[in-house]
């Protein structure tokens, strides 16, 4: 039996092919790594050291793959691999099931949340006070959805993520509050039309209906003005106004913080940086102006004393 025949017996053709490919690949990458010319100066010694480390690691990996390939070829391993192949579908099934369960749980959780939204809205009476809708929507957001923006982010970018989540959260809160505020602001408009309608009805009954459109308009605008004045004096309106301003400011601050992150990537100074500079500039300017004034007073006094001093 020839040596080649012995090799063929030891290693089946596919295995031989793999080992040959491994050896060829090792030679190729090793030679490629060696082609780098030796560096005369010390500064490049580090680079050589890195090359050697790379070669060493490369060889280790190839040896590992070789031994793994050989190990796989042995009979015990063969049976083990066959068993593994049998088990594989079960494992995949288990993994899929686990993934499915997780997905299902999330879906179930979301459905529960949506269900709660329904329950929450049912608790309010919308028949008379439309603005309750906005309060309810804010409450739903705060209780059911806001928590997703508060999930603690992890890793290197955690602070950036946190600021972005905060921006989205603050934006949603501002939108809700603004909608509520606008609805409050629209109330006098709605009521003024109702009152106008009633007035016109009673005037029609009395036969004193205004003939011109201008008169109708004048009547309506007066009613509207009265309603607005009443609304503006109410505590509810003042509260809604302050709440809206506050939420808008929260949103703008969050927006500024996020923008700050982006601006830092660019060669553009942020407002925060400029404000620090402006403050220093302001203080310095104030001091310079004060000193200028003092010098002016002193030079005037000097002139005065020179003039009053006897000549010669």
């Amino acid at each position: 039996m020839t040596e080649a025949a012995t090799d063929a017996e030891k290693n089946p053709p596919n295995e031989l092919l793999f080992i040959n490919w491994l050896e060829a690949a090792t030679d190729l990458w090793s030679n490629l790594a060696k082609t780098a010319a030796p560096n005369p100066d010390g500064s490049k010694q580090t680079k050589n050291a890195a090359q050697n480390r790379f070669l060493g690691q490369w060889k280790t990996n190839l040896s590992l793959m070789k031994s793994f390939s050989q190990a796989m070829n042995e009979s015990e391993s063969e049976s083990s691999t066959a068993q593994a192949i049998d088990v594989l579908p079960k494992i995949i099934l288990r993994m899929s099931k686990s993934g499915w369960d997780t997905g299902f749980q999330i879906q179930k959780h979301l459905l529960e949340k949506i269900g709660k939204i329904g329950k929450r809205t049912e608790a309010y009476n919308f028949d008379n006070l439309d603005e309750e809708v906005f309060k309810a929507s804010t409450e739903i957001y705060e209780k059911e959805l806001q928590q997703y923006f508060h999930v603690p982010p992890l890793g290197l970018n955690r602070y950036y993520q946190e600021r972005l989540s905060s921006l989205l959260d603050k934006h949603n809160l501002f939108e809700n509050t603004l909608a509520e505020f606008l609805s409050v602001l629209y109330l006098p408009m709605e009521k003024s039309f109702k009152v106008l309608q009633e007035n016109l009805q009673s005037m029609a009954n009395e036969g004193t209906l205004p003939k011109g459109t201008k008169d109708h308009y004048a009547m309506w605008i007066k009613i509207l003005e009265g309603h607005y004045m009443n609304l503006f004096k109410s505590k509810e309106y003042t509260d809604a106004l302050h709440k809206t301003l506050s939420k808008m400011e929260d949103f703008l601050l969050a927006k500024n913080e996020t923008l700050h992150d982006f601006l830092q990537l660019l060669p553009i100074p942020t407002n925060k940086e400029m404000d620090e500079l402006y403050k220093e500039f302001h203080v310095l300017k104030k001091r310079v102006k004060e000193l200028e004034k003092q010098i002016k007073v002193m030079s005037k006094a000097n002139k005065g004393s020179q003039q009053s001093a006897p000549a010669g």
Binding site: T238, H242, S246, E249, L252
Partner: peptide, 15 residues
């Protein structure tokens, strides 16, 4: 009326 309850610090910080 409106100015009495305004959060002036936050306003200045924002704008």
């Amino acid at each position: 009326v409106w100015m009495k309850d305004i959060d002036i610090d936050k306003m200045i910080q924002t704008y």
